[in-house]
Design a protein around this nucleic acid. Sequence first.
DNA 1: CCTCCACAGGAACTGATGGCGT
DNA 2: ACGCCATCAGTTCCTGTGGAGG
Length: 400
Amino acid sequence: MSDPIDDLLDAAESGKSIIKNRDILHFTYIPDTILHRKNEQEQVTQSLLPILKQSRPSNLLVYGKPGTGKTLVVKKVLSKIQERVERSNFPIKLVYSNSKNETTLYGLLVSLGRQLGLEQDELPSNGLAISEVFKRLLSKIEGGKLNAIFVIDEIDYLAQLVVKTGKDILYQLTRANEQLKQGSLTMVGISNDLTFKEKLDPRVISSLGEEEIVFTNYNVEQIKKILEERINESFIENSIEEPALNLCAALAGGEHGDARRAIDLLRVSGELAERQQSDKVTIEHVREASLKIEENKEEASLKSYPLHEKLVIIAIMKVNGSSTGEIYSSYKNLCKALGKDELTQRRITQMLSEIELSGIISGRLVHQGIHGRTKKYKLAISSEMIKKSFKDDLSLQDIV
DNA sequence: CCTCCACAGGAACTGATGGCGT
DNA sequence: ACGCCATCAGTTCCTGTGGAGG
């Protein structure tokens, strides 16, 4: 009589593992030499070079699609510079922040402040006026005679926040040096959106875009090389079949040249192969991994929605392919069934476009002449997926 | 050619939350 | 104790619109 758990454990123990170093299979792992980005590394280094001469470098803007290694290169260069400078008496303070992780302007400034060493009592996490927070940041820099380098990732998000709130933070940041008597502030902005600059205030452009570096997309060949490098270090020899590697590079690199996706795909494929006790990663493993990654993404985003968004999704599932009006009445029925107050149609339209952005549903604007203008939505994922994701939500169980 | 539908989607506002400085 | 500030979900009010049907 064998226990299934024991069987699995036995198999896992006796089976050999084909991945020898997992860390290397994460995009954010910084290899000693980031190949294929020599040019860009040089450019970034050059524009930051003045730091070594103890003067303030120009502000810097870095563009590139996701997965082109922008952030990695910037981080690597900066940390090298910091290493050198540390031995001199010109301390630089590196501050990294990702605008996407901070939903509000306030949050972003606070996160910058925390890294500068402002504690909770010096810089509370809410309650202050933005201008007050800003003042404290500057006085910290001045007081500590810091030479701060703010690396702001996804700076286009920040720019959006600035527009939304009408606070001219970007401008003030880029011109902060004029107010500082001691210390300095350098900005390194990283953006995915190549057109983002056009939306900026021209005064900001002139000071922020003193230097610009564009990271081009990887092509499939380059992605393949990157994968090969990582494979060499992280997998045992000959454990990836050539066609599997090709597919990996093609799937991830084909459209956008996204090395991050390629590496993720490689890792998941490897893990799948290992779990199946295969000693090679085959083309099927890659296909399976690609599916699995997609599904995980869908499930995670489905689960993370608040109640009313979930109801809207279920409403669409019930009347797949219908107009906003029909979805809305379907949604109202669901609300009634649950005894919840329904939200206005305006709010639901907004939710629909938010959900559409995430790719779970797709909408199409149709004009029906005398029957008006509406947007028809249909699910972009299977309804099984929705049922599966929502089934552990107690209140939703009986309506799905 | 005009009308008029059924919404899309912008703008401004509200009320609650939470916490500041004075 | 008071006024002020930032943020968020949501509401109210609004203007805009392609084309079927008259």
